[in-house]
Design a protein around this nucleic acid. Sequence first.
RNA 1: GGGCAAUUAGCUCAGUUGGUUUAGAGCGCUUGCUUGACAGGCAAGAGGUCACAGGUUCAAAUCCUGUAUUGCCCA
Length: 875
Amino acid sequence: MEISKTYDPSESEDKWYKIWTDQGLFNSEPDDRESYTVVIPPPNVTGVLHMGHMLNNTIQDVLVRRARMFGKNACWVPGTDHASIATEAKVVQKLRAEGIKKGDLSREEFLEHAWEWTHKHGGVILSQLKKLGASCDWNRTNFTMNDNYYKSVINVFCDLHQKGFIYRGERMINWDPQAKTALSDEEVFYKEVNSKLYYLRYKIEGSDDEWVNIATTRPETILGDTAICINPDDERYTSLKGKRAIVPLINRSIPIIFDDYVDMEFGTGCLKITPAHDPNDYELGKKHHLEVINILDSSGSLNKNAKLFVGQDRFDVRKSIADELDSSGYLIKIEDHINKIGFSERTDAIIEPRLSLQWFCSMEKLSIPALENVMNDTVQFHPSKFKNTYRHWMENIRDWCISRQLWWGHQIPAFFYGDGKEDFIVAPTKEEALKKLNSQSDKQYNLDDLVQDEDVMDTWFSSWIWPIAVFDGFSNDKKELDYYYPTNDLVTAPEIMFFWVARMIISGYEYVDKPPFKNVYFTGIVRDQLGRKMSKSLGNSPDPLELIQKYGADGVRVGMLLSSPAGNDLLFDRNLCEQGRNFTNKLWNSFRLVQSWTVSDEIEQEESSLIALKWIESKVSQNIININSSYDKFRISEALMLTYKTIWDDYCSWFLEMIKPAYQQPIDRKTYDSVVLILEKILKIVHPFTPFIAEEIWQQLKPRNNTYIVNAKWPEENINDSTILDEFQNFQAIVMGIRNLRKEKNISNKVLLELNIKVNTNWSNIFDSLLLKICNLSSIVFTDESISAAYSFVVNNNEFFVPFTDSIDTKTEISKIEIEIQKKKGFLESVMKKLNNSRFSENAPKQVVDLEIKKKNDAEKQIKILEERIANLSS
RNA sequence: GGGCAAUUAGCUCAGUUGGUUUAGAGCGCUUGCUUGACAGGCAAGAGGUCACAGGUUCAAAUCCUGUAUUGCCCA
């Protein structure tokens, strides 16, 4: 049967994926075997696959497939995250396009739309992962809004409230005026922005013409000023002690206070204090018992407390108030100023610090075991440099604002029975809340008296229990949890180290008293060639499915991993996928070659084939040792490169060339059978990286009776002959010497050459038969004399001569050798410098000195050989 | 502003407690190769004063100090 010259992945990929899943090869149930567990970082339920997912999930699949081949019970749990704010934003947008405003809908109606949207778009991303070859147990697909999962989240909330970790409080939080919701600190990102610094003067109360000058970037907030603050060490302003100032335009009298918080260098050294609209001012306000005047409403417009500009947007007011301050003589000057401003991660709106009643989770105590067990490597970070970042964050951890003013998500299980701030009961259901309430109250309430808190929880408050909840860890049946938890490896991006990783560790210790995973592998961010983050708005992200179509899933997998050391960003280049595709093609053609041979039982195995087999056995074993060690250190791209070279260099370029029968000649049975065994080994080690082609060749190679490479055993290494590996290096050098010579002298590969060898050190003849074959030699002749009429080179102090076939160019030959001698002499000089230094020979360890002596002897010997050669040529 | 990293070939990166033949890989580049697995291939070659300046040491890409640049995290 004719096999295609190039490998076509499109057919075999879908075929094998279907068979694998139909056969249930990726499914896992607890049994006697050791478990190997990975939980997927759940992508947004309505998201689509991007390059970050590709990298992340390729790495997970490589780890999972390899573990499966080690005979472990591999379980990779897939699923999605409801992504409360992102999904809600999409639904609102979609409704708006249909002319429906969120405000016109009831909560129930809105949620119906949201579920409809989720069902329509949800899970697309998971089917895309199948294209990539992800070997997930799809029966276990989970979702953070599934009934069971929902209940787990609610129970955790109630439990933490019961334990006193969750509380309700008025705090200054990050407010997104566009989404009209609170955000956690982690959902705010800061950007440097060109803005203005306004210098204003406030009149001192009771004076005729005494002023205090302040500088502010937010003149609109003066309407909420309740003090002016000065550093007590600032001698410029000591006269202001005890005085009051008048807020311009509204003429409110405010105190002048003193606190060393104020930076004397910044602006004028006088700071206006607006406790309602700046977190630092808020803290100062609390300390000095200042009045708090909130002048903004939830959309960022001024409210009636502002007295002026009521109903206008904060940024419009900034312009108008500057004009008005100017015309009434309060504005001194405006300077350009660069400052950092917080933006909403989701809506990109400028964050407004806002005082509001929110739910918080107290983190300090909860985080203690989570910090400790990362620092002591119970949970290992790869690369370990991220431990520093982690520690820094954990040591300065702040309470987590977990409420969001949204509808799509887990509704906070707090039920209000009165108007007071504390008139609520926390319980999993309304019924339970009622029971609880009535048991502790004289008055008897009924269900209609209870109103559930409108807010939902932060999305991360559901995903932080992902590794527990996907194994039903909050139910009474702990069979799954006991077997699969702690999971083994988590593969994720460093950007969500605090959002997610740290919090999973915290919840793991709180609820299972064990870490959620043993290793965390941080991938880098996938960037484009210019180093920019890939994003929809830049349009610089390739479509993963198109890449898979073009290069094959195997090719893309290899392309993604070729240059992605842990924790470093990856500058994505589709040429890497091309390299991956070429690699699969190389593998394919090496299979075609083996497949094309006719096998003969009549002919004997050649000596050269026997040696070649002996060598490749040891070589592959040696490589497997190195590959295993790279995997153990989570150096995945290093493991890939070693695998790549095993196949391309060792197996294809050297081994197959060594055993290849002459054109249209058969191969002996013994050699052929051994080649098949080697090829099987090679398919196994490449399978985690390129599962599809590995399975395709595995199945075509011989009948497998419904067994698959997916479950094949990872090969064991056995180096039965290590000297052959050293000898091979000399052999390689000789082959290269002859190839070089052919190229330089323009001697075709078809011309038979005679190789003369003058043995100066020991010579093992095991590779002689292979030299004859690979270098196309007529014979190998051993000689005691140098041959003058010949090209020559030196390997391991043995001299090799190929007699001149035609015209003689001794001049070039001599100058070539002279260059060689110069090089060697330079080297010898650097060695001698060391050896002649008495402090070196006295202080350095003996083996280091011995090595230098050996280098010296070798170099001297080589120089001598070369000099003799010149003498010979010129005579 | 505070913290943490990084800087090695044209590009992307290795280089494991300082010493293994005057620094390695992949890609790219240059040159040569048309019958026999693969041009998505084969072979050979060029390319680096290891960011800079000091220091420690018999010995520094590797350790220390400073400078510059870049990235990340936090405020």
